[in-house]
Design a protein around this nucleic acid. Sequence first.
DNA 1: GTCTTTTGAGCCAATGTTGAACCATTGACC
DNA 2: GGTCAATGGTTCAACATTGGCTCAAAAGAC
Lengths: 231, 231
Amino acid sequence: MALPQATNTRFQTAEDVVGDIQRRIENGEWPEGHRLPPERELAALYGLARNTVRSALNRMGTDLIRVVGRGTYVKARNGGSVPGLGRHMKDASPAEVMEVRLIIEPQAAALAAHRANSDDLAEITEILRRSIAAKGFAEFEHYDAALHLAVFRATKNQLLVDYCEAINSARHQPHWHRLKQKSLTDGLRSQYDREHSALVDAIKQRDAEKARRLIHQHLTHVRDHLLAIDA
Amino acid sequence: MALPQATNTRFQTAEDVVGDIQRRIENGEWPEGHRLPPERELAALYGLARNTVRSALNRMGTDLIRVVGRGTYVKARNGGSVPGLGRHMKDASPAEVMEVRLIIEPQAAALAAHRANSDDLAEITEILRRSIAAKGFAEFEHYDAALHLAVFRATKNQLLVDYCEAINSARHQPHWHRLKQKSLTDGLRSQYDREHSALVDAIKQRDAEKARRLIHQHLTHVRDHLLAIDA
DNA sequence: GTCTTTTGAGCCAATGTTGAACCATTGACC
DNA sequence: GGTCAATGGTTCAACATTGGCTCAAAAGAC
């Protein structure tokens, strides 16, 4: 994303730099394969000597690939290779993805409230039931994604469905998984359940405006908790 | 066609060029069998040495066919390698695409009004000027797409930029091309010019709400004219 | 006071970019 | 057929960028 690199915090030791770089990798700001700024640039950025930055980079060992004359790259964790659809999502940071979700999903929910037929409503209701009954993190994640997808399907716009699937593919990225796992406490889980239920009710009542508002609220909460962990 | 190509982004390495050429091929700007500009011309276009451009072309290996004395051609690709959002765009109906545009672009314009820096504004202004000065259908189309893309770039959200490129790829589909060509009368062309100008002004004034409203109006007009022809 | 870390500086080696020149092939034109 | 411009193929030396490395002095940490 070509960040302005706002490093307002103070960095004093190599350990600080290791932490900052790991954070940037974890939250997707520097995705796999990304080329880091040159050592000399990083040094200026952190306000430290180049040797200190080098020391930090060296400590990160296998997470980075360093090539003389070319630069330092974030090592691709094996497997990655999500095919096609998620290509863009894969490189996107959680902040970017949530921004796009907040743009699209409220409108999609409003459309769904207008266009959903009884089959759509039945499916959405069933998935909601299962997501509430879900035990454990992985199962909840699965039905959460399925619920949002079912809402998109009810819009009857295949392009929107494709978008939702692309977004869902981001959930399978390692750093996303870590973030969500960290942020999803029991209390939050039940809050999300309530928000999902309210959204489904609004769609059933054909109240597009209410659906729009509720999912916007919901995603705002998701974003805030995700990025709070991030910081 | 000899398009001016509007390479506003900065290219510094062979890797950048590889990415740009792959993008142009993927979004249909350079379809299968298309002849690329000569190496020396590409070099001037990207502002790089011919050797650097050659290095980029060589790295693309089987995607290109290079013949001494004739030129460089896009190789016909058997099978769908590298499917992306663009692939779905191509299969989508104009009605679906316009529905999604009406959802996303107003919000993107509002974001752009908030986040555009002076460089972004200068670029947007320049592209607007060229789009108004454009002679003929193809040139106008080119700058029209470039204008919308420049607005998305100003949001600083790479995911939104990717989305806009996917939309633009739809413009290179023969079906779309025919529709737009039929619908774009001289009167409509000047109306679009006015709407574009008003939008750019709103962004410059940092008036997010106005920008949102104006682009929504604009896209509504585009949709109505497009679908009137379609029907 | 001793030990570790950080600093600043310099030099080296690997890689990429540049600008230029010249060659080989193709196709259009006479 | 001969000529000529256009185009890709090749090579080369100079320069720029970037990580690898060393070393002595300064700054903290215990």
